[in-house]
Simulated assay, not measured.
Amino acid sequence: METTEKDVKALLAKLPQLKQEIQKVIVGQDVILDELLVAFLAGGHCLLEGVPGLAKTLIVKTISQALHLSFRRIQFTPDLMPTDIVGTEILEEDHITGKRFFKFNKGPLFANIILADEINRTPPKTQSALLEAMQEFEVTYGGQTYPLDKPFFILATQNPIEQAGTYPLPEAQLDRFLLLIKIGYPTEQEEVEVLSRTTGTKMAKVTPVVTAEEILQVQALVRQVNISDDLIKYVSKFIRATRPDTTTVSYVKDWVRWGAGPRAGQALILTAKARAILKGRYTVLMEDLQAMAPAVLRHRILLNFKAEAENITSDMVTSVLIKEITRENTL
């Protein structure tokens, strides 16, 4: 374990440098960058939601430049087909024997980081092509299974305000995203800096600082981070409290149509472990769980009509649950 901890400390020393490289291009967004780094260390996919012009695509592209990883961008459109993502078979000829054969031509999904830009603009048939890749890290075509490169991350973006020509993501696919990260407007000071940086002739150059092997190494270690039995019970109680049929919180019965499933508990524990690693700890604390809960549950709690009419958000439900379940645990 001493060797492992030594290796991890060497890698942890690179993480601040990684963030510095990203911030050469990205102004502010500290919380967003931390949540993305947590997702990378936990080995999960992210859905970034924000109005146009908030640098969602730029954030993903810059992160890929700061890592020694292959990157592909897929622009999701209504006419995009599953084969445009996964790949297709093409007919080739052996020039020596003259025999013809089908060869699988890999699509853009075969890369380490996939930017699924405006993912909600493509029909469910194409969206479903991502499900196997997101869960199993492999794709199947013509009865043949092809493993994807590791590490493998899908970072998808969507615009929450534009409904024309969009297709809401199925709940089954939403659940495959480890985190739903919301990107808001910058502060006044940050916006001034953005305008200053992006309207001149000087272009920032991002230098890669972390390799794929190092990411896989720390992903393996994340699962070794200690979490107490009491905190695991807390997570179970917390997730069960999101479900109207098993909750003791009256607000959940009033606002929630469907609560989170067991995958939400797994995501909460894994992201809390990754956050602990980022903070230089090898033990999960309550603050790690509470910090990651909003991004984990944001897309896994389905609100009812009453909640929508009262402008209640899933973040508000999560905030109430944190207070209620923590209070019950301290009684």
Rank of each mutant, 00 (worst) to 15 (best):
R327I: 05
I32A: 12
H45V: 09
T3P: 03
S314G: 10
L67G: 09
A293D: 07
T199Q: 14
L130D: 09
T198Q: 13
V210E: 07
L285P: 01
K150E: 14
D7Q: 06
G50V: 14
L47M: 05
Q23H: 05
F177Y: 02
M134S: 12
I183W: 06
V320R: 12
V31G: 01
I232V: 09
R243W: 09
R300V: 12
V317S: 10
T313D: 12
T313Q: 07
A267C: 12
L33Y: 07
F137P: 01
D7V: 06
L270V: 00
V60D: 03
A42G: 15
T199P: 06
V209H: 03
A111N: 08
V38R: 07
V317L: 13
T145N: 08
L47K: 03
L69I: 01
W255P: 00
K14H: 00
S70C: 00
K99L: 15
T166V: 05
I215E: 01
K106L: 09
F153Q: 10
M134R: 08
F152S: 10
R72I: 00
V209D: 01
E136K: 11
V249T: 05
L278C: 04
I90E: 12
P124F: 15
A10S: 14
L130C: 08
L285K: 11
E136Y: 05
D149E: 13
